[in-house]
Amino acid sequence: MINKVRELRESRKLTQQELGELVGVSRQSIAAIEKGRFDPTIWLAYDLARVFGMGIEELFDFERSERK
């Protein structure tokens, strides 16, 4: 799914590892989400959105993403 995770993570100078620790998942999961290879669960999406201080729909672009 198209998302802003990478740009927001980099703007906050967080590594994938650090972001993973903040939301309780592995570095690989963050990498896969950033590349759009893995759609997170609704709870993980919620946790990520909270870390960046925004709503899920702002973080993940549902309109431009392909439904899997």
Binding site: G24, V25, S29, P40
Partner: peptide, 8 residues
């Protein structure tokens, strides 16, 4: 495991 690792 998290969900992504489990899928792997």
């Amino acid at each position: 495991y998290d969900d992504y690792q489990l899928r792997c």
